[in-house]
Amino acid sequence: MDLLIPEIGLVFWHTISFLILLFLLAKFAWKPVLSAIKERESNIENALAAAEQAKLEMARLTNENEQLLKQAREERDIILKEAKELKDKIVAEAKEQAQVEGGKLIENAKREIEDQKNKALAEVKNQVSSLSLDIARKVLTKEFEDQSKQEAYVGDLLKDVRLN
């Protein structure tokens, strides 16, 4: 049973050594350990604050990026709409110009056809009149070789003039 109950001297020296160790630890180790713990605690708090700040900054940047994307989409839609309107306007102007040019070409062709027709008619008339004169000259030359035929013809002409 001696092992279970310690002697008074042993308890005394153990207590003195514990108090000396406690004094030495309090004097030399306790303050640095506490300051290290406080420094570690402040570092953790700073890191948490920095993480929260970074989280807020990321949320702000995300929101800003979404706003920029929305604005860029709106600008893209406006640009596409303007481009479509410009394309439609250019196509409409080209169609209108093509119709005007086509109308001018058709009008010029009609005028040209009318001019060619008039020239052809004039030429036909000239040829017909020249042929008629040639035929009349030949007929008259043959008919009027005889004096009595000439007088009969002049008489017929005078009858026709009086009737008209």
Rank of each mutant, 00 (worst) to 15 (best):
D2N: 14
L3W: 14
L4V: 11
L4R: 15
E7N: 02
H14T: 15
S17C: 10
I20G: 13
L21D: 04
K27F: 07
K27C: 02
F28M: 05
A29M: 02
P32D: 03
V33L: 15
L34I: 12
E39W: 02
E39A: 09
L56E: 13
R60G: 00
N63V: 10
N63F: 08
E66I: 09
L69G: 07
L69H: 07
R76N: 11
K81M: 06
K81V: 00
E82V: 04
A83Y: 14
K84E: 14
E85F: 05
L86T: 05
K89W: 02
A92H: 10
E93V: 08
A94N: 00
E96V: 02
Q97L: 12
A98L: 06
Q99F: 06
K104F: 03
I106K: 15
A109W: 11
K110W: 06
R111H: 08
Q116W: 07
K119A: 13
L121Y: 10
V124D: 02
N126L: 11
V128L: 11
I135V: 09
A136S: 15
K138Q: 11
L140I: 05
E143W: 04
E143R: 11
D146M: 02
Y153S: 05
D156T: 15
L157G: 14
L158I: 02
V161R: 05
L163Y: 03
